[in-house]
Design a protein around this nucleic acid. Structure first.
Length: 828
RNA sequence: GCCGAAGUGGCGGAAUUGGCAGACGCACUUGACUCAAAAUCAAGCGCCUACAAGCGUGCCGGUUCGAGUCCGGCCUUCGGCACCA
C-alpha cells in the first residue's frame, strides 16, 4: 500500500541508496544500443553547489534519462575541474594544503549531487588535480610541444598583481582579471604559449559545421577570432635605411595616405630616436604613452595624440613624401604594428590629422554628392568612385581594392594578407595549484622535455605559497633540482604550472576511458563516444573553455588520436538563476541554497521547479511560491496515484479501446496528446517548461475523470498512470520510481522502462468548435464534425442564423475556411 | 560604432507552419469543508464596461480575408566585440 502522504525525504534516500547499490547508471562502451553522450560542464570544487549547478545538472539529467528510456546507451559522467586559485588562496589564508581543501570540497559537493538523484556513472569520475589525470595533461603539453604548438616566447603579457600571475587574453574582461576583477597590467615576460593562432582559420570556418550551437556563441567566437582580409605592403624609408610594413583593409584608399603612424613599441623607434634633434621630447612622449594603462590606451574614446618624428618615407605609388609620426592609437601587436594614415577616409586618421594639421586628400567621392575638404567635418568611410588616384580614377572603390592590391603585388612591394584578432594562448601560470609544465632547463642541452615515462612531474608539497615574485614551485629545492635526461648533468625544472583551462580542454575525452594508464584514452573508446552529443553549460564559457576545447580537439585529430574535429555537436547554454532581478550573491543577500530547498521539499521539487520556471536558455527568476507550487503538483500526483491504487494493482494491461464512453475517450485523448507533446518538447525543442505544463494538464484530466466517471476503467487507468509516471521520470526520478515500483512494476525500475508511445487515433476528437468570422471579426462559434471539409464548413457557416442576419443582403466577396479552426466570410 | 538576442496580464511564461492571444503555474478573489485555521476541492481572474460593444502582444506604418508571428522604419533592455587600421 502507498502511504497516504507524499514523504519526499524518505523515498529519495531509499532510491538513492538502491541506485548506488545496483550501479543503476553504469555505462558500458560495448553495449549494442546507439550511443548518446550527454555532458554538463564539470564544476570547480568551490565547496557547495549553487542553484546554477542545480539547473545545469537537472537539464542534463532530464536529457540523459530521456535518452536512456528512448533506447540509447547514454554516457553521462561527472568530474572536477579541481586545479586553480581558490584552493591556493585557502592554503594561504587558512593554512590548509590545497589538495586537502579540494578533496574535502569534492566530497561535500559529490554528496550534494547524489542528493539530487543525478544519473551519473560515478565509476568514470575524473578529477583534474589527481596524478592519474594531470599526468596526461602533461603528456598533451609534450604532444603540443613536439608538434611545434607549445613555445616559450617573450612578449608583452597580461599580469594580475592580485593573483600574482600572467593571464591569457581570454581571461581579461574589460581590462580586468576574470577571477579577482583587478586591473590587469602589461609586462614583458618570457612565457609558454599554445599556438592557437595556427588554427584560427579553421576555428572560424568550422563554426558553420555547428548547427547545433546557439547563434550567440558562434557570433562571440567569430568576433573573438576577428578575421580580416587586407593588404600588407611597405613604405620605403631611405632616411632611416629601412622599410615600414603596414597592413590595411582599405587598399582603395592608399592614394590618400599622407602620413604613417608608429606606436612607441615599434622597432624602428630606436633608430628614430638616435641622434634625433628632438630626442628628449620624443622619448618623453613614448614613455608617457607606454605608461598609459592598456584600457585607456585601447579605448576608442581616448584622445589621439602624436609627435612628428622628423623623418619621412616614400609613398609606393605616388612617390610623394609621407611623414612618420609616433602615436598612442596604434596597436603594436596587431597586423604589422604600423599603420598608414588616410585622414579623409578613416575617422581615427581624420581626428589625428585635424589636430596636427596634416594634409588631407580625397580619393573616394560618393555617388550622390561631391565632397569638398573645406566642408567635411569627418572622414567619409562609405563606398564611392575613385578620384585623385591616377589610373584608378573612375573605378568604384570596390573595384579599386582589387586593382590596387594587384598593382602592389605586381610591383613586388606587398601582398594580400589575412589577419586575426585572436592571440596565442598564454598557458603558463606563476601559481602552485596546477599541473607542472614538464620541462627542464639544462645548462648544456637547454630546454628539455621530461621523458614520457617519467610523467607525471609531481607537485611538491614543501612549498611556500606566498612566494612573492617567484612561482611557488621555485621555493621547493627538492622539486627544482633534477637531472637532464639527455646529458645526465644537473638541471633545473620549469617552475610554472599550466592554466586550468588546459586541464578542462580534454576532460570530456577522458570520461570515455577514465582508468587507462597507458594512454589518455584508447582510440576505440574515444571514437565510440566522442564527440559529445549534447553539451550543457553556462554562457560565460562561450569563448574561453569552448574555444580552447575546439582547438584541442583539432590538434588531437591532426595527431591521429581522435577522429572528430569538433568536441561538442550540440550545445545548450543555460541562463542564470536570479532572484529579485539580480544574480544570486552573498553581498546582495539573495542566495537560495540548494540544500535548504532539498531539506524543505526534497530534490524532486527542486528539480521540477527549476525545469518548469523558465525555458533553459533564459534567465530563471527564483520564486519561493513557485517552488511550493511544484511541491503541490507532486502531492497531487501522489494522491491521484494513491486514489487509483486498487485499480492499478489489478494490472489490467489490455482493454477494449473501440468501445469507450465519453469520459474514457476524453482521458485517453489527453493522455496521448500529452505523450506526443512531452516527447516533442524534450526531444526537439528542449522546452522542458511546456513539457511539464502538459503533464500538469494530464494530471488535471485525471482529477476530472475521478470526479466524472461513473465507472472506473481499470485498463485505461493503468495505461494512463503507467505513461504519466514514465513521462515524469526524467524530471522527478525519486517519486516516480517509488510510485512505479508500488503500483506498476516492482521488478523493472522506471529509469530502465521504455518511453511511452502515442496513438494518433486516440488523439482524434469527434467534433470541433469552429470560429465564425465576418471580415476577420469573430461573430460566433459552431460545433462541427472534426473531419468536416472546407466545403462542409462553408455550408455550416452560411446556415448559421446569426451569420445569415449579419450578411443580410450584403455581397459575399469570398469565404476562407480552415478545417478545424475557422470560417471567415468576407462581405461588402 | 559593429554583431547578436529579447520586449506578451499583477508575476514566471504559452501560442511549434500567418488562423479563437494569455496554455500551465504563481499571486489574488469568492465559495465548499472546518468551531477556526492550514491543507484540499470548486469557481473566477488582460483592460474598459450594467450589458452589448470596444480596446489589447514596445512604437509608427505596410502586406493579408486574417499579424504576437511576415515586411519597412524606429524605441527600449540585455549580451558580445570595439582605436583590430
Amino acid at each position: 500500500m502507498l502511504n497516504e502522504k507524499y514523504a519526499p525525504h524518505e523515498i529519495e534516500a531509499k532510491w538513492q541508496k538502491i541506485w548506488a547499490e545496483t550501479q543503476a547508471f553504469k555505462t558500458n562502451t560495448d553495449d549494442p544500443r546507439p550511443k548518446s553522450y550527454v555532458l554538463e560542464m564539470f564544476p570547480y570544487p568551490s565547496g557547495n553547489l549553487h542553484m546554477g549547478h542545480v539547473r545545469n545538472y537537472s537539464i542534463g539529467d532530464v536529457v540523459a534519462r530521456f535518452r536512456t528510456m528512448n533506447g540509447f546507451n547514454v554516457l553521462h559522467p561527472m568530474g572536477w575541474d579541481s586545479f586553480g586559485m581558490p584552493a591556493e588562496n585557502a592554503a594561504i589564508k587558512h593554512n590548509i594544503p590545497p589538495a586537502k581543501w579540494t578533496m574535502e570540497n569534492i566530497a561535500n559537493m559529490t554528496r550534494q549531487q547524489k542528493e539530487l538523484g543525478l544519473s551519473y556513472d560515478w565509476d568514470r569520475e575524473v578529477t583534474t588535480c589527481k596524478e592519474d589525470y594531470y599526468r596526461w595533461t602533461q603528456w598533451f603539453f609534450e604532444l603540443f610541444y613536439k608538434r611545434g604548438l607549445a613555445v616559450k616566447k617573450k612578449s608583452a603579457v597580461n599580469w594580475c598583481d592580485t593573483c600574482n600571475t600572467v593571464l591569457a587574453n581570454e581571461q581579461v574582461i574589460d581590462g580586468k582579471c576574470w577571477r579577482c576583477d583587478h586591473e590587469v597590467v602589461k609586462k614583458d615576460l618570457e612565457q609558454w604559449f599554445f599556438k592557437i593562432t595556427d588554427y584560427a582559420d579553421e576555428l572560424l570556418a568550422d563554426l558553420k559545421d555547428l548547427p547545433g550551437w546557439p547563434e550567440r556563441v558562434k557570433t562571440m567566437q567569430k568576433n573573438w577570432i576577428g578575421r580580416s582580409e587586407g593588404l600588407e605592403f611597405s613604405f620605403d624609408c631611405p632616411e632611416l635605411e629601412s622599410k615600414i610594413p603596414v597592413y590595411t583593409t582599405r587598399p582603395d584608399t592608399i592614394q590618400g595616405v599622407t602620413f604613417v603612424v608608429l606606436p612607441p613599441e615599434h622597432p624602428l623607434v630606436e633608430k628614430i630616436l638616435k641622434d634625433n634633434p628632438n630626442k628628449e621630447e620624443l622619448e618623453a612622449f613614448c614613455t608617457k604613452v607606454r605608461n598609459t594603462s592598456d584600457i585607456e590606451r585601447t579605448s576608442s574614446e581616448s584622445e589621439k595624440v602624436g609627435m612628428y618624428t622628423g623623418f619621412n618615407c616614400v609613398h609606393p605609388l605616388t612617390g610623394k613624401k609621407v611623414q612618420i609620426w609616433n602615436t598612442n592609437y596604434v596597436l603594436y601587436d596587431y597586423g604589422t604594428g604600423a599603420v598608414m594614415g588616410v585622414p579623409t577616409h578613416d575617422s581615427r586618421d581624420w581626428m589625428f590629422a585635424d589636430k596636427y594639421g596634416i594634409e588631407k586628400i580625397i580619393v573616394i567621392q560618393p555617388k550622390d554628392k561631391v565632397l569638398k575638404l573645406e566642408e567635411m567635418t569627418g572622414a567619409y568611410e562609405e563606398d564611392g568612385v575613385m578620384v585623385n588616384s591616377g589610373k584608378f580614377d573612375g573605378l568604384t572603390n570596390t573595384e579599386a581594392m582589387a586593382a590596387i592590391s594587384d598593382e602592389i603585388e605586381s610591383l613586388g612591394i606587398g601582398n594580400r594578407r589575412v589577419n586575426f584578432r585572436l592571440r596565442d594562448w598564454l598557458i603558463s601560470r606563476q601559481r602552485y595549484w596546477g599541473a607542472p609544465i614538464p620541462v627542464m632547463y639544462c645548462p648544456k642541452c637547454g630546454e628539455v622535455l621530461v621523458p614520457e615515462e617519467d610523467l607525471p612531474v609531481r607537485l611538491p608539497e614543501d612549498v611556500k605559497f606566498e612566494s612573492g615574485n617567484v612561482s611557488p614551485l621555485a621555493t621547493a629545492e627538492s622539486f627544482m633540482n633534477c637531472t637532464c635526461p639527455k646529458c645526465g648533468g644537473p638541471a633545473r625544472r620549469e617552475t610554472d604550472t599550466m592554466d586550468t583551462f588546459l586541464c578542462s580542454s580534454w576532460y570530456y575525452l577522458r570520461y570515455t576511458d577514465p582508468k587507462n594508464d597507458k594512454a589518455p584514452f584508447s582510440k576505440e573508446a574515444v571514437n565510440h563516444w566522442a564527440p559529445v552529443d549534447q553539451y550543457i553549460g553556462g554562457i560565460e564559457h562561450a569563448i574561453l573553455h569552448l574555444l580552447y576545447s575546439r582547438f584541442f580537439m583539432k590538434v588531437l585529430r591532426d595527431a591521429g588520436l581522435v577522429e572528430a574535429g569538433e568536441p561538442f555537436t550540440n550545445l545548450l547554454t543555460q541562463g542564470m538563476v536570479i532572484k529579485d532581478g539580480a544574480k544570486m550573491s552573498k553581498s546582495l543577500g539573495n542566495v537560495v541554497s540548494p540544500e535548504e530547498i532539498i531539506s524543505q521539499f526534497g530534490a524532486d521539487t527542486a528539480r521540477l521547479f527549476i525545469m518548469f520556471a523558465a525555458p533553459p536558455e533564459r534567465e530563471l527568476e527564483w520564486s519561493d511560491q513557485g517552488v511550493e507550487g511544484s511541491f503541490r503538483f507532486l502531492n497531487r500526483v501522489w494522491r491521484i496515484v494513491a486514489h487509483f491504487e486498487s485499480q492499478l494493482v489489478e494490472h489490467v494491461t489490455e482493454y477494449d479501446t473501440s468501445n469507450l464512453n465519453e469520459e474514457d475517450k476524453e482521458l485517453r485523448r489527453v493522455l496521448h496528446t500529452s505523450i506526443k507533446k512531452v516527447t516533442d518538447d524534450i526531444e526537439q525543442r528542449f522546452n522542458f517548461n511546456t513539457a511539464i505544463s502538459s503533464m500538469m494538464e494530464l494530471v488535471n484530466a485525471l482529477y476530472a475523470y475521478k470526479d466524472k466517471a461513473a465507472v472506473v476503467n481499470s485498463g485505461l487507468i493503468f495505461e494512463t498512470i503507467s505513461a504519466l509516471l514514465r513521462l515524469l521520470a526524467p524530471f522527478v526520478p525519486h517519486i516516480t520510481e517509488e510510485l512505479w515500483n508500488k503500483t506498476i512494476d516492482a521488478n523493472m525500475p522506471i529509469h530502465k522502462a521504455s518511453w511511452p508511445t502515442y496513438d494518433e487515433e486516440a488523439m482524434k476528437v469527434a467534433t470541433v468548435e469552429v470560429l465564425l468570422q465576418i471580415n476577420g471579426k469573430g461573430k460566433g462559434r459552431i460545433i462541427v464534425p472534426s473531419e468536416a471539409t472546407k466545403e462542409d464548413l462553408e455550408k455550416f457557416a452560411l446556415a448559421d442564423n446569426n451569420i445569415k442576419d449579419i450578411i443580410g443582403d450584403k455581397q459575399i466577396v469570398k469565404i476562407i475556411a480552415v478545417p478545424g479552426r475557422l470560417v471567415n466570410i468576407v462581405i461588402k
